[in-house]
Design a protein around this nucleic acid. Sequence first.
DNA 1: GATATATGTAAGCACAGACTTACGCGTTGC
DNA 2: GCAACGCGTAAGTCTGTGCTTACATATATC
Lengths: 102, 102
Amino acid sequence: MDIFEAIGTPHRRRIVELVAAGERTAGEIAAHFDISRPGVSQHLSTLVAAGVLTVRKAGRERRYTLHAEALAEAGSWLEAQQSRWNDALDRLEREIAADEEG
Amino acid sequence: MDIFEAIGTPHRRRIVELVAAGERTAGEIAAHFDISRPGVSQHLSTLVAAGVLTVRKAGRERRYTLHAEALAEAGSWLEAQQSRWNDALDRLEREIAADEEG
DNA sequence: GATATATGTAAGCACAGACTTACGCGTTGC
DNA sequence: GCAACGCGTAAGTCTGTGCTTACATATATC
């Protein structure tokens, strides 16, 4: 599952927000949700698989941290599309100007 | 459906890439996919509903354009999480420094 | 070593949604 | 006016996935 799919659900985006504020254990994260703990655990797994989070075993706990580079990567794609679009607009504008001139 | 969910599938992300390069008709877009034309049409509808694209009727064609602001909004969320994370790292670093000092 | 705690895994269910084919509707062109 | 075109909508299918409960595993605690 790719990054965009991973952050494509509200629950998982909420998890990202929580972990972005600092390292969290699975239990701490689960406490913020109405769904069952295993349900949250599965969301955590998909986020790790997508490279959005990182796990670290600490005794009987699992500490989840944000892998910010993954978010940056997604951001790059978004920016690329926006600059593509701006280029397209510029081209269009120049064409119109050329038409009016000629 | 929110923006992230809208761009959460590879097909729809591909559509965004196509339209980012310039205004496209439904048919032009559909030509780039292996799935049926109605299938593409449904993807277009969800992208419009999510505010990612804009439609304009032109005769019997429908011209789709990118609504770049929507992508910018998604980008803002990503950046916010990254800066949150950087703040958390800074706090952690300061705490460690304070511990070592004291 | 037995019990409790923190967590993941397994199995199953129900629903969303990504497809398909068939059809309808407006527009263009003869 | 009528055929062809461009496109969306309807209806149905099927798979993925977001949940659930039950169970397994590893660590801490006494």
